[in-house]
Structure formats: structure tokens, C-alpha cells
Design a protein around this nucleic acid. Structure first.
Lengths: 419, 419
DNA sequence: CAAATTAATTTTAGCGACTGAACTAAATTA
DNA sequence: TAATTTAGTTCAGTCGCTAAAATTAATTTG
């Protein structure tokens, strides 16, 4: 198991030649057609000449490819294009035909599932939520629970499933995005569930699955603060501590598609007990259950209330001046600083977005935390990392799931043959 | 400075459109010509038909492109190609013409600079070392020190600088690989030194500069244990604690080209004092100065000897049964476990290589450390991370620097016009 | 030993994805 | 009105590759 090799010297390597032996995996540069489409969607509307300049391609290509996509009903010309320079032939802007396709994004959760239906331009057409039944369930039970949610969305939008190009879906736990399987999730009663395939079979529609931290990161990349950055990190503190990383506009999923388990990096040998069973995890100082654990002591209350309720009272107490309650938030804040500093040391992002719905405990996200974070960072000539706080509504996750679906649907539709 | 944004909601984004706004940077898939060349070099020798199969390209392309490179004197046919299957027309293997280009790799160090000259097939042609003078010096002093080292190599190989296609160079500190500048290094007495440009001007030869942890990682990727992996991490414990990461056969240099400062991730709030001035850095429990600091206490000796000598005696004492000395190594070992576990949690590599010249303190790299590391890792369905120990000779760093130079020289020569 | 078989390599035509340059279109300015 | 300016179109041509037929060189087999 502990496969330690003691190789004294490799000056005479066992393999002939030098350099990496394995082939580069295809860093699939998307075809120009798709790049143009995505650029138009990102800008909202742009003139052909601007596209050519922005992407550094010839005007001829832009004409040809956009003409094709206009004929296919994916793009349309905008009639009254605003002009900045008054001279020359006025540009004709292009925009995505929003109705040309629709996708659904779904967040599977322990308390309440949420879902969003968006058009191909990323506009929300309908959203819905659905209470969740018991915490751990089988795949088929889960599907039975989600189907009415989808039906709800579809009836709001007066559409049916055949009009949906793709469904993105997120669940907490360990998710293999490639295969759509869930090796482990707190919401499922079976390991290694082939959740993506099960949904796809039942719905007859392509389903893309990812971890919820990745969903949040995609939401930032597609709809939030991260849109104007091609490299940034997202950190979220809720039930656990999650992290996502965007490198070159692409979600980085770790070497083997897992990883990025920021909540379980160890910040203290033999430290506080984590729900994962180990000690010293960052999460054990920071997540809601960690605060709730201490709240029951500080507030001198038995642990009868829910974690969320416990934190609410704790927060109220802290605001009211209760010292014990304050120190709880302060300590958590220091550990958050430490976690963020570690992210900076390892990844050196230009921006970290603190994101999620529960970004409202000021004690946890006060300026003190950022000061401490910078203090804990080697700043030798490194330009300081910006930290942005981003409190979203309840539907972030589902929005992020639509981004997952939009990515896939775009490749399918735009890359498709000019039929 | 602490640029915190409190954005309540982004459902109505300030920007039109959706999706990433910035263009994808060119994930330059190298041209087939270069892929073929690199594949041949990696294999040592291969037949054209094998190349076509391995790279998944048509045989016609392979013929055309290799014919071109044979004419250019970069490839040659091998006369006696061994055959495995006896039937059919025998394959004719191709190999790189080793003499068609040469590169130099240099490691700039505080005690002794080292350098290696290799041919285009990666074979070492000559190596040399050169004692270093005082620790911190100016760029021009450094160049004056390195030039004789290069002359030494060249006279051994009976060549002159005009025959050298590229020079790779590594220095500890913070290095901007893109620009060849050194924002900070313990070996230089000036910040933001334009070291790469200074060397290139003086030598009249392209110079590529990188951080020494990256050099070590490249050495593993090109010549060592990492050759057969396209994704792995390298961790080294010496003066400091360094880390390198390879993703898809490519060295990952962090979001902004820095990062990967594993030595300065915090593993304890208000922990041991680090030479960076902060407290609780991993390095402060693990690096040679950290052990030496404790050695002076355990061995009841004044701190007069060098760090290296102190560790040597400490190691001898521990082997001889001195309990105090043992606990020092044991504690360091536990922190190494913690650091490795954190690397696994965040990056999830399939392999971590513990590399460097000083991989011989068994206490530090005992099986206990690996057991503890796995214990500290969430292993829910994650296939366990393999750990390999790799003790190299003195010239690893310089070898890694040749890999840097080979990469660049290959792109130049192979990608060049068929003149 | 000649023919059949097998496999490596070469040749050839051609396709897909662009570019570059010439050209047309529509507005402003003098 | 003509010159100028900028946007968009057209089209021949190039580049990088593939697919398939043709060729070559060895091994087997009748």
C-alpha cells in the first residue's frame, strides 16, 4: 500500500529517451464557430468587426460562420445598434437567439431542492423549489422527488422536456463529473451511484453532474464576479468549507477530478474533531456544525435546536455583546484567515470570492479576517490577492448548474453539423 | 487594499450577456511535427507506424513530417531495428540525431553552482561545478561567476556558445518564468533583477529562468519517476519545503506564475517561528534550519556549527538511540505527513514524489510518515495516492534546467520553418 | 522457389478551417 | 458631390491534416 521506491539514482534511466512518455491530452481548443458564439453570448451583443478584432481572426471567417449560425436560427442581427464613433459604415450587432434552446439547472439538497430553467442566452425563464424528504435516500426515490420539480418548471415555461437541451445537476459529496457517478454523497444511501445515467435514462435528456462547490464556482464564472477574471478561487463556508478554482476560464477539477477539499486540509495536528472523523480539519473550526457545537456551550443551551437556529442565536448574542459568543466567531474568523492564506500560498489567485448564501455573519467576514489573511501571506513582491464577498440568493447553485448545462449544450448545438 | 465587495445579488448583472468575458488563452496544442519529434525522443526510437498508432494520426502525415525532419538533420533512421512480430515488412525505427543541438542547464546556488551540457536527445555530455562566493551578490557578479562554469562545460565538450541552442537556469526565490525576472532571491542583493535578460545579453544565447522547485519537478518529468505519469506532485524538503505540480505533462506554475509555496502554508495558528518572519509555516517544523534549531537544544551544543552539520550529528544521535533527537525527527515527520495530506486533499494527485538530494534521513521519510499521511487523508473512494522517494545526485537541479532549455529549444528548432 | 500473406511506408487526391486581399456598402465630412 | 472611413462580403488560396490506393519488403506457404 505504501509504495515507497528508493531509487538511488536515475542517471541511467530504465526507460530509453527523455521527456514525458505519456501523450498530452487534447487541450481541445474549441472551433472558431463556437468561440464566436460564446463571445457574442458573453458580450450580450457585438458587431462582426468587433468579434474579428476581439478574437484576432479574419473578418471573412466571422462573416461566414455567423451567416451560418444566423441561418441555423442561433444568432440574429440587432436592428438598432448603438454607435460610438460616428464615422464609417455603421456596425450591425449580433445577439444570441435566446429561444433557440433551453436548459435546466438543479441543486439537490438535504432540505430543499431548487431548480432554474434558462434560455440559451442565460436568462432565467422559471425557477422552483421542492422540499426534500428524508435525508438519505435511494437514487430512484431521489428521481421521484426531482421529476415534479422539473414538471413545475416546464409548466411555468409552457414547454416540455423535448425542448430541453441539457440538464445540469449538483449534489454535495464526491462526484465524478466525467462519468456522472457519485462515489459518495451524504444525500444518498448507496455508494457509487450512477446518478447521472439514472436521471438521463428516466428523463431522456443529457444530464451533467457536478459537486456543489463546483456549481458555485461556475455560477461565479458565468453570472457573477468571476466573469471578468479568467483565474480565480471561490471559497464557501456553510455546512462545510468548499472551494473551487478557475484556471483560464475553465473549472479546475483537480488532477483526478476530485480534490479541492479545502474543508479537510489540516490546520492543527490533533485539533478539533471534524464530522469526517478526523481531527484538525479547517472545517472543524469553521463550518456551521462547528459553530453550533460551541454555541451550545456559550449559550448554555442543550443541543436540541438545529445547527442553523443555534448559529442564529449565537450571532444575535454576539451582536448584543456576549463575549463568549464573540470569541467563537473570532476564532472561526482566524481560522478562515488561515485557510485563505493557504489558498493564496498554494494557488496565488488574483481574486478570491467568498461566496454563498450565508455570507452575512459579519463577524466571520470582517475586515479583521482579511487583515489577518494578508498578514499570514508571504507578500514578497506578490501583488496582493483581492477578496470579494458575494452573497447570492437561494438559487445560486441551480444557476451554476445551468452553466454546466449551457456549456454542454453549446458544444452540442454550436459544434453540430450545419444540417 | 482590502477590497471587499458586498454585492447583494447578481441576478441582474451589471454586464450584459452571460459566461466568461475574457478570451480563453491559447492552449497551444503543439503542431503534429513537434508532437512526433517529442514522441520519438521520449521513446528513444520508434517506427513510423508505431508513431501513427500512438498519436492517433495518419501514417501519411508521419511519413511526410518525418521525411522533412530527416532532411533537416534532426532525425535519422536506425539500421538494425529489433522486430517482435516476424511477419510483414519490417519497421524502420527513427531516432533523434542527438548532435543536432545542445543545451546547457545551470543551477545557481549559495554554496556551489552546478551545470550540465546535454545533447538534443537529453544525454549528458559534460557537467561541472563551481564554488560560489559570498551569499548575496549583484547580477553582474553572479554572471562573472557563472561564465567560467559555462566555459568549463564548453571546453569539455569541445564546443563554443554558438552551438548552444538555449540555456536553462534555476535560482531559489521568487522567479517570474515568463519575463525572466527575479522579484526576490536570497542569492541576489537587488530585488526585481532582470536576470534572464542580463544573462542572455552577456551570452548571446536564449536563457530561460525558473524557480528551483520547478527545476526539480521538470527533472522528474523529463528524466525521473514522473516520466510515465502525466499528473503528479513533487515535494522537496531541504533548506525550505518546496513543491511542484505537473498537470497533463505540463508544469503548473500557479495562477499568476507564482504560488506553490508549500513551505509557507500555515499548519498551526501562532506556531513555530519561520525564517520568513511568520509563525506556523510548515517549513518552520521541517526544514533544515528548523531541525538545526532544535538540535542545538537536544545535543546541548551551542549553535556554532552549520545547519547541515547540526543535522548530521542529530541524525547520528537519533540512530544511536538518543530519545530527544528521535522526537525531533518524529515531530518533523508528523508535520511532513500533514503537509502531504494537505497536498492530497487539495490536488488529489495519483503520485507524490519526495525528491531531492537529502532524502536520506530515514526518520523523516519512514513508513510511519506515510501511514500518518494516509490517516490524515479523506479516502472516501479516492484511490490512494502513491508516494515515491527519489534521492538524486547533486546534478538534479541542473538536469531539470536542461529540461527547461530542451523544451524551449525544441519548440524553436522543430517548429521552425523548413528552411 | 514462386505465389500468397502480412505489415510498413509512400503517394495522391482532397477536405475543412482558416486567411488575405480585393470588393461592396453605408455612413460622415469637407 | 467627392473623398474618407469603417463594416461587411466574396473568393482564391494555403496549411495541416486524413483516407485510401499503391508500393515495398519481409515471411509463409504450396
Amino acid at each position: 500500500m505504501y509504495d515507497v521506491l528508493r531509487q538511488s539514482d536515475a542517471e541511467t534511466p530504465p526507460l530509453p529517451g527523455c521527456g514525458p512518455v505519456l501523450p498530452m491530452q487534447d487541450h481541445n481548443t474549441s472551433p472558431l464557430r463556437q468561440q464566436i458564439f460564446e463571445h457574442i453570448r458573453a458580450k450580450g451583443q457585438v458587431a462582426r468587426s468587433d468579434i474579428a478584432r476581439a478574437l484576432g481572426v479574419s473578418a471573412g471567417s466571422v462573416t461566414a460562420l455567423t451567416a451560418d449560425m444566423i441561418a441555423a436560427g442561433m444568432l440574429q442581427e440587432v436592428d438598432d445598434t448603438p454607435r460610438e464613433s460616428g464615422r464609417g459604415r455603421p456596425p450591425v450587432a449580433l445577439r444570441v437567439v435566446a429561444q433557440c434552446a433551453h436548459v435546466i439547472g438543479i441543486k439537490i439538497s438535504d432540505d430543499q431542492h431548487s431548480a432554474v430553467l434558462t434560455d440559451f442566452a442565460g436568462n432565467t425563464v422559471a425557477d422552483a423549489v421542492q422540499p426534500s424528504t428524508r435525508p438519505r435516500k435511494s437514487v430512484s426515490e431521489l428521481i421521484d422527488e426531482i421529476v415534479p420539480l422539473i414538471d413545475n418548471l416546464l409548466s411555468q415555461a409552457d414547454m416540455d422536456l423535448s425542448k430541453i437541451s441539457a440538464i445540469g445537476m449538483g449534489i454535495s459529496g464526491i462526484v465524478d463529473h466525467q462519468t456522472g457517478t457519485v462515489p459518495w454523497s451524504p444525500l444518498l444511501n448507496e455508494p457509487d451511484a450512477r446518478l447521472g445515467a439514472a436521471f438521463a435514462d428516466r428523463l431522456g435528456c443529457p444530464v451533467y453532474l457536478d459537486n456543489d462547490a463546483n456549481l458555485l464556482t461556475l455560477a461565479e464564472l458565468w453570472f457573477g464576479r468571476g466573469r471578468t477574471m479568467s483565474d480565480f478561487a471561490v471559497v464557501t463556508v456553510e455546512h462545510g468549507v468548499g472551494m473551487g478554482l478557475v484556471l483560464g476560464n475553465r473549472l479546475f477539477r483537480g488532477v483526478r477530478g476530485m480534490g479541492m477539499e479545502l474543508g479537510h486540509i489540516k490546520v492543527q495536528l490533533d485539533g478539533a474533531l471534524c464530522r469526517c472523523g478526523q481531527r484538525g480539519c479547517l472545517e472543524a473550526y469553521l463550518a456551521d456544525y462547528a459553530l453550533a457545537r460551541e454555541a451550545s456551550i456559550a449559550l448554555d443551551q442543550p443541543g436540541t435546536q438545529t445547527a442553523a437556529a443555534a448559529i442564529e442565536s449565537l450571532f444575535a448574542e454576539a451582536k448584543a455583546g456576549n463575549q463568549a459568543a464573540r470569541t467563537i466567531f473570532q476564532r472561526a474568523g482566524r481560522f478562515l484567515s488561515l485557510g485563505l492564506a493557504n489558498v493564496i500560498q498554494l494557488f496565488d489567485p488574483a481574486l478570491i470570492i467568498l461566496s454563498g448564501e450565508r455570507m452575512r455573519y459579519d463577524y466571520l467576514y470582517a475586515d479583521d479576517v482579511l487583515t489577518e489573511m494578508h498578514r499570514l501571506t508571504l507578500d514578497t513582491s506578490r501583488s496582493q490577492c483581492e477578496v470579494a464577498l458575494h452573497a447570492w440568493g437561494d438559487l445560486v447553485w441551480a444557476r451554476g448548474a445551468t452553466a454546466l448545462a449551457l456549456t454542454a449544450a453549446t458544444t452540442d448545438l454550436v459544434g453540430a453539423a450545419t444540417a
